[in-house]
Design a protein around this nucleic acid. Sequence first.
DNA 1: AATTTAAAGTGTAATTTATACACAATAATT
DNA 2: AATTATTGTGTATAAATTACACTTTAAATT
Lengths: 246, 246
Amino acid sequence: MAQATVAGQAGKIRTFKSIQTEVQNINKVALSVDCVIFGFDENKLKVLLIRSDLKNFEGQWSLLGDLVLPDEGLDTAAYRILKQRTGLNDVFLEQVQTFGDVHRHPASRVVTVAYCSLINIQHHKLNILDNELHWHDVGSVNEMAFDHKKIFDATYLQLQKRVREHPLGFSLLPNKFSLRELQNLYEAILDVKLDRRNFRKKFFAMDLLIDVGEIETDVPHRPGKLYRFDYQKYEGSTRKWSGIAF
Amino acid sequence: MAQATVAGQAGKIRTFKSIQTEVQNINKVALSVDCVIFGFDENKLKVLLIRSDLKNFEGQWSLLGDLVLPDEGLDTAAYRILKQRTGLNDVFLEQVQTFGDVHRHPASRVVTVAYCSLINIQHHKLNILDNELHWHDVGSVNEMAFDHKKIFDATYLQLQKRVREHPLGFSLLPNKFSLRELQNLYEAILDVKLDRRNFRKKFFAMDLLIDVGEIETDVPHRPGKLYRFDYQKYEGSTRKWSGIAF
DNA sequence: AATTTAAAGTGTAATTTATACACAATAATT
DNA sequence: AATTATTGTGTATAAATTACACTTTAAATT
């Protein structure tokens, strides 16, 4: 946090009151939160975007964001946006990076905090059509409003990194999933092909998948067993996850 | 970035002017930058702190920070603080995380962006004594003003992680260093003991150290060879650094 | 009922990487 | 000349990663 001094004027002891005056008089900025909301559907990694409501970005897509309210923390603001737009709470949410280029917003100075969130797209399927919302394939995200492409790129890169270090991916899947679905997910996120036998070996070796005793239905071939992730065991383990590192 | 709407009012096309009015009328926050400045001296990892100039934190230590100026980017603000306080430019600097709890500052809402910076303490040795600045051992950082302990902890953890993935550590060393110094640095940052032979093997295998053809002086024993880090080769390599992963 | 289809499920050998560990060489100091 | 403290070096073992192919199963088709 600041010394609450303007550049180069340290050294004096301040009181609350003097600080308050100082802070009121000096520059403030508008602060927003932008959520990069990922989903997984039809073996593709998707991102939820909205058509920009700003005239000079007409037709362009942008992230889901809003200004942070006066008595609202950053994480809280991100949760609010997520809840509003997807109807979901209890999702994975993580701060990524803050973007504060002076002219990133055409109308005034707006600094934005980017969040990465992962949702289970099956639980969603809600108010998509009526609104200007759309799930885009991450591979086909091009031009975006503001500096949102830059924010998206940074967030996606961080997701690729995080998902190798921590078991985040399960947030994108149904509670029960087959190993095939799990592998498809990793292949979609990391944009690589993985060896099936080695992939299974690695996940079984972690011993964090619970066989739920069911199998896939409605597949036109031998159905796979269904598993769920053992969050409890993972939370309780001191060593946590040693990383995927494919 | 925000849709520049207050919660739940999406859907209308806005013009610059309407946005501008809206942004002016709604909440703004004071924005600051806080630098966690690390140095390495006497085989200890150090952090540069300043005595708080705020009355109700009298005597407590705080990070080096300041409010972000109206026409200043975030990185620029962090560089400014670093330059002011250490006289150094051309240092390692990386954004870490943004802290925005509503009541983190006692006087008013101030959101702060934390930066991690690594400096070569030999190049410094400047205006430390005259000011209220002091280099603290990272192991002995306790209570701090504001939420600065939390910020410090998060930044130090990130440093420990980053230093295994990227060759940042060299920013903390003189241009020419012995392998002993390099190992001491890693041991200090990661707070572990490392095997000397395996450490050397690993670094030589990377082939990013250049033997400068000199040896240590003023050591009361066999002097070690001096090396420098091959930044050029590192920048040019596509594969980059595969991680230390001790 | 028999055949086809598509993916599930499984193991091993080769390679690479990480770890544990000890002694001779050197420069400075006494 | 002897002592001191650290440099510099190699090998054997263990662990992790990679590459790779065939049989089993359920559903769909003939």
